[in-house]
Design a protein around this nucleic acid. Structure first.
Lengths: 115, 115
DNA sequence: TTGACAATTCGATATTTGTGGAATTATCGT
DNA sequence: ACGATAATTCCACAAATATCGAATTGTCAA
């Protein structure tokens, strides 16, 4: 991942409405929600929300698809994973024993069933 | 964690110099680096860097302490963990099987030795 | 084809943010 | 106390960003 892409992604999350939207969709799961539902839930005008959704999608944090007249948005879990991986890359010079905290600990969702 | 605090943290990471600094310190580990070393490594004037370090620290991503004439900065692993936990809270309605990606997978550093 | 609905794009304004030289504060060795 | 070093604060300017009403595009049912 390029630093530029990570900056875009963090900038996307660094705004009240967009952070609410992202967390709402993280909680909603892969099925996502239509743009209109998201607008109603976070309480912002459609035009403003559209701007924010587009920014989150271009940042690689959301994906979207059309169903009839609605456009659904959902978390891009792979894009999100790449972002967090970039941020923590080569943590502690690769020596886990240096750290006293398990960063990954609370992120216990979206775990593929072990093969 | 309050949304406001998370926004400050993501905003802190959404800037080229600051993201470089944070990643540098993630890799440096808990021992951290003096401000001057950081400035030299990322190639920015001391005053500019000081501004950025202060912002990262106030955002809960770094901590600092004085040693003689130098001020050391290091990743605040606990603050970082709280941020990522907030972002992914209640992912997939608590139903991991809904997701196809293990978000935590790449964040395999800083893992406490299992008791 | 007409009307209604869902969402996006346009545009103009107000706000926030990044930058780095100069001055300041803090610490140290002699 | 003095000079040197390390870092921060101050300041002013340039650049990027959030907002939302109005207009536009795309989709659907009859």
């Amino acid at each position: 991942m390029e630093p530029k892409a990570a900056i875009d992604a963090f900038a996307a999350l660094a705004q009240e409405t967009r952070l609410s939207v992202f967390r709402l969709l993280v909680q909603a799961g892969p099925g996502g929600l239509p743009a209109g539902d998201v607008a109603a839930r976070v309480g912002v005008p459609a035009s403003t929300l559209s701007h924010h959704l587009g920014l989150l999608e271009r940042a690689g944090l959301l994906r979207s698809w059309r169903v009839q007249r609605q456009i659904f948005y959902a978390t891009d879990y792979e894009g999100t994973r790449r972002l967090l991986a970039f941020l923590m890359k080569d943590c502690c010079q690769g020596l886990p024993e240096l750290c006293g905290t398990n960063i990954a600990d609370p992120i216990d969702c979206c775990v593929e069933t072990m093969a």
